[in-house]
Every structure is written in C-alpha cells, then in structure tokens.
Amino acid sequence: MTLADRLNSGTVSFTAWSGIPDTLTVESVSRLGFEVVTLDMQHGAHHEDSVARCVPAITGPGKHPVIRIPVGRFDMASRALDLGAEAVIAPMINSVEDARRFAAAMKYPPVGERSWGPTFGFPRSSVKDHAEWLATQNSRTISFAMIETRAAYGLLDEILDVAGIDGIFVGPSDFSIAWTSGAALNPNLEDMMGAIADIGTRARKAGKFAAIFATDPKICGRYASMGYQMIAMGNEQTYMRVGAENLIAAARAAIS
C-alpha cells in the first residue's frame, strides 16, 4: 500500500515529525504507532545526507517516508523522491508560480520536469523495472503545498488547480501569525478555524489531499471532520517528554 492508497482509504493517518538527523533515532520513532514519518529539513536539523540514510529506517518498519524541504528548495524535492520519499511537503507556497515550480520538480514529463535518476529510490522500492517506475511515479508520489499565509489562502483554488499539486498541508502556527498580522502565535486560534475548515473542504472538493499539523491531539477529531486525512503531531522532544512525564508520574504515584 502506498501513502496515496492509505490517504484514499477513508481513515486518518498520523505522521510523526522528526528533526533529529540520526538514523537510530528515526528508526525508533518509526517503530511507534504512527503510519507515516516526516523528516523536517525546514525547521528540523535534517539535511541531504540524513535523508538519504534515514529513509530505510522508516520503510524498514513498514512506515511511509515524507520529507519537508527548506523554503524554495525545489531541487531537494526531486532529490527526496530519488532517495525514496513517498511525499514532499514544500513550505511557504505563496504564489501560483511557487506551486508550478514545486510541481515541476515533483513530476516526470509531461506533467512536470523531474529529471531521471532514481539511484536509491528505485532499489528501495517494490517496483519491478524502470518502465513501471516511470509509468507510476507521478501517481505514487504526493506533492503537498503548504498553506500558511493569507496570500496562499487567497490563491488556494489557483494553487489546487496547478497540475502536479496533489494536496495541501496547513501550518497552523504560521497561519495564525499571518491571520493576526503578526500579533499572535496560536495554532488553535478559534478565529481562524473557519478558514482552516474552508481549506480542507476546498482541497477535498478539488480531489486533492488535505493534511495539517496538530499541536494538541484533542483537536484531531475536529480536523478530521474538516476533511484532513493526514495529521502531524509532536516531534522527538515531545515524544520523550510525554513518555518521561508519564513514567515519572506513575513511579511517584507508586511510591506515595
């Protein structure tokens, strides 16, 4: 099952978020209950070498690898796919031209301009030959354009209409900063929830995927009802902190 198959199955998928560029750490995260693992090159410390080495640490336990590239690094989108990623998240897609450049890097002709060279991705896949790879990659890989500014929201339909853009990924923290003109950082800001619901609805109506980052697991049901099919939560520090807090609280309760 590909990530696209999973997202089309009708169930919500959860992605872990990794910022530590260490193969053993990523392998440990990949053995948690998430269906997907995202390596973050934008705000996390992942880089080209860690992506190359960590993709097998994700696929080994049977999870789906996703890469968030740095802002404007559309060349890295192609490289991520060549290294075996199933999806790429591109931040700050604020214009139709941004979306077109991202899509061009993600898709082989005639849809885009992705160059041939799946040096690591092909042998890491279950695809039998290069002909099958070429024929199926455009549908097997997912391009998520991040919607996190008022400019992107204003151009949402045009971005969704770009050939080769498969879905959107909402960054609610940046969206809250944009929504309040820099006055507040609140990813759960009630005043913008109508817009977030609208983004999910319009993406699904266009036949595209919808994904979002949740800073509070309690909001996931609300996001799912808005049409979001993939939800990101936490990072390694969060998983360690929450796990440690639960362990220590249980131990102290036992002692007292």
Rank of each mutant, 00 (worst) to 15 (best):
A232R: 05
P123I: 05
G171T: 00
A210D: 02
I142E: 08
A203Q: 00
S176R: 00
A145K: 01
A250P: 08
R140H: 14
G234W: 04
P118G: 06
G164T: 10
N8E: 09
T149W: 10
G84K: 07
N186K: 06
K208T: 02
M193F: 01
E35Q: 15
E35T: 13
H64E: 01
G72Y: 04
A57G: 14
D174M: 03
G200D: 08
A87P: 05
Q137E: 03
A254S: 13
P61E: 09
R31V: 10
M92Y: 13
Y228F: 12
A163C: 04
G117Y: 03
M1R: 08
R73E: 14
A87K: 05
L134R: 05
G112V: 07
Q237G: 15
W179G: 03
H130W: 09
P61R: 15
G234E: 11
Q229D: 02
F120I: 09
G164L: 05
R31K: 15
S28W: 13
V55N: 06
T2D: 09
G194H: 01
F14K: 11
I142V: 14
A195P: 01
S50I: 03
A80P: 04
P217W: 15
M193N: 07
M240Q: 14
P123S: 11
H46G: 10
H64W: 04
P217Y: 14
W133R: 03
D174H: 09
A206M: 06
Q137P: 00
T141G: 08
P21C: 04
I196N: 00
D82F: 11
L247C: 05
K63A: 14
E35F: 12
L156Y: 03
A152V: 10
G62W: 12
S181T: 11
H46L: 12
Q229W: 02
C54I: 13
G33N: 10
M76L: 14
G117P: 00
P118R: 07
A195K: 04
F169L: 07
A45R: 13
G33I: 01
P56I: 01
F74T: 13
E97D: 15
I20K: 00
K63T: 10
P61G: 09
I89D: 07
M192Q: 04
I20N: 02
G182P: 07
S95E: 06
T141D: 06
P217R: 15
L7D: 03
V71Y: 15
R79L: 09
V29T: 09
A253Y: 02
S143H: 13
G167I: 01
A85P: 08
R73P: 13
I67E: 09
P21G: 05
F34W: 06
D198M: 00
G112K: 08
N186P: 07
G200V: 01
V162N: 06
E113F: 01
A253W: 00
Q137C: 04
K107D: 13
V66G: 06
R140Y: 10
E190K: 07
W116E: 14
P65I: 01
M193K: 14
E27Y: 08
A105N: 15
